[in-house]
């Protein structure tokens, strides 16, 4: 049941009826549309809204409800000023399988992955990991049946509607199609993650 879902003493999980409301909802909340909000955490279908205290939650609930009822469903438009170009060498261990699963062939997968700009929908899983959406729908492939115990840092993967890049070596079940040298995570940078929510990514094939 979409709406404002309870999430403990000082947070609400907001689930819009239309997932296309999420970007505008997240932007509005991050921009201070509801007083008393201390943290906004977007995810695939929901956004967590944390208030500083139970009383702030009580005070902000009506405004949050109003925002949810009025926020538009919009397909976000790529913003060149917020677009990061990432060079990828397409030689991942699952590239051949993805080429087969999608029926696109290797060149077709590379063309589809580099053609459409991807939007950073949300972060999670590990520091600096970004879930990218809005790519070519023909690239939707399931996760690997068996996750790899160790995926090298910089690996570029696909899973469901998402593409993502492993910021550091970790276990992982995404289908790996390539690798990048891009520095996704620099603790001394502000923000430390190269790909923060609302940014756009364009992949570029390099040898």
């Amino acid at each position: 049941m979409p709406g404002l879902l309870p999430c403990g003493p000082d947070a609400i999980l907001v689930e819009p009826a239309d997932v296309a409301q999420l970007p505008a909802l997240t932007d509005a909340l991050a921009g201070g549309a509801v007083a008393g909000v201390t943290e906004v955490v977007p995810a695939a279908r929901t956004v967590l809204v944390r208030f500083g205290s139970p009383s702030a939650l009580t005070a902000g609930r009506a405004a949050l409800d109003h925002l949810l009822a009025t926020v538009p469903a919009v397909v976000p438009v790529p913003d060149p000023g917020r677009t990061v170009t990432i060079a990828v060498t397409y030689d991942g261990p699952d590239l051949a399988e993805v080429a087969e699963l999608t029926g696109l062939g290797v060149d077709g997968v590379v063309a589809a992955h580099t053609a459409a700009p991807w939007r950073v929908a949300f972060g999670g899983f590990a520091p600096g990991f970004a879930y990218l959406t809005g790519g070519d729908p023909r690239l939707q492939v399931p996760r690997r049946a068996e996750p790899r115990p160790s995926v090298p840092a910089g690996s570029v993967g696909l899973a469901g509607e998402f593409s993502g890049i492993y910021p550091r070596s970790s276990p992982g079940g995404w289908q790996l199609i390539g690798r990048t040298e891009a520095a996704l995570w620099e603790p001394t940078r502000e923000p430390p993650a190269l790909l923060s929510p609302g940014r756009w990514v364009r992949f570029e094939a390099v040898p």
Binding site: P42, A43, V47
Partner: peptide, 10 residues
């Protein structure tokens, strides 16, 4: 369930 944010104490 599509991945969603979780909180301490969840």
């Amino acid at each position: 369930l599509p991945s969603e944010p979780v909180v301490r104490g969840g």
